[in-house]
């Protein structure tokens, strides 16, 4: 087996064109899944026997929270690859992830607060799950701030990559916070080893939303990655050729 396909992923012009080709393959299925999932979740699914219609916020909250962790993991892995193998494209991927992940984290926190007020009786509590998720938002913002603060791209890459790698410790803490400590937040209903504790008619739209959000992240990441590559390589000759063409 040859590794040429893999080594080509380190080449900015190749990644730039590949990302453009791949984007629709993520964007269209994402749009269909999210529309289908919303229809299934907001219209077809029955109301919950305890929470009534209020439970439907899960169709945005749970996928956002799941993506907040997945995007961070992606960012940390890309940053580590960039650190170890000195691949610029990997750093570009990590840098592209941060604002997307921060948005998902923000969405998870806001939707959770809106659900928490009627159901728990409070918008916010300094609970292990809520607090660790808030720390995740600060990690994203810190990562973006650190990048913005360093003029030199290479130094920004390395410094922010170390921060991303350090912060990855928070990811398992968030996931297991509800099982390790007494917490107000319920334990996972879907992301667990045993069978989901959710009726199929509610679960299927949720899984569609999860997959849809994941593909949506892929599409946005590809678009952002192209922009990131363009700005990093702005003085390269291959870009001048693209602009001329």
């Amino acid at each position: 087996m040859t590794w040429t396909w893999f080594h080509r992923l380190g080449s900015p012009p190749y990644v730039y064109t590949l990302a453009a080709r791949l984007t629709p393959w993520f964007a269209w299925p994402a749009a269909l899944l999210i529309i289908g999932g919303l229809w299934g979740g907001l219209v077809l699914a029955p109301p919950d026997y305890q929470q009534g219609d209020g439970f439907r916020i899960i169709y945005v909250h749970a996928p956002s929270a799941w993506m907040s962790l997945m995007v961070y993991t992606t960012m940390a892995v890309a940053a580590a690859v960039g650190l170890i193998w000195r691949i610029k494209v990997a750093h570009a991927v990590a840098a592209s992830c941060a604002p997307i992940g921060a948005s998902f984290t923000f969405a998870a926190l806001v939707t959770g607060a809106l659900w928490g007020e009627p159901m728990w009786g409070t918008y916010w509590e300094w609970d292990p799950r809520l607090t660790s998720e808030l720390i995740l938002l600060f990690l994203y913002l810190g990562y973006m701030g650190l990048r913005a603060g360093l003029e030199d791209t290479q130094r920004a890459d390395r410094a922010s990559a170390v921060l991303a790698v350090v912060g990855v410790v928070n990811v398992p803490i968030i996931h297991y916070s509800v099982t390790w400590w007494n917490s107000l937040h319920q334990a996972p209903s879907v992301m667990r080893l045993a069978k989901p504790t959710m009726a199929a008619s509610m679960l299927v739209p949720l899984l569609m939303m999860l997959l849809g959000f994941t593909l949506f992240f892929g599409a946005v990441l590809l678009v952002r990655l192209r922009g990131e590559v363009l700005s990093r390589e702005r003085s390269a000759s291959w870009i001048r050729e693209i602009v001329k063409a």
């Binding site: 728990w120 409070t122 007494n182 504790t197």
Partner: peptide, 15 residues
């Protein structure tokens, strides 16, 4: 002075 409902996915606190 404050009462919060804990909604467990199993309808029982794990502890």
């Amino acid at each position: 002075d404050e009462v919060l409902a804990k909604h467990d996915e199993k309808y029982m606190p794990p502890e």
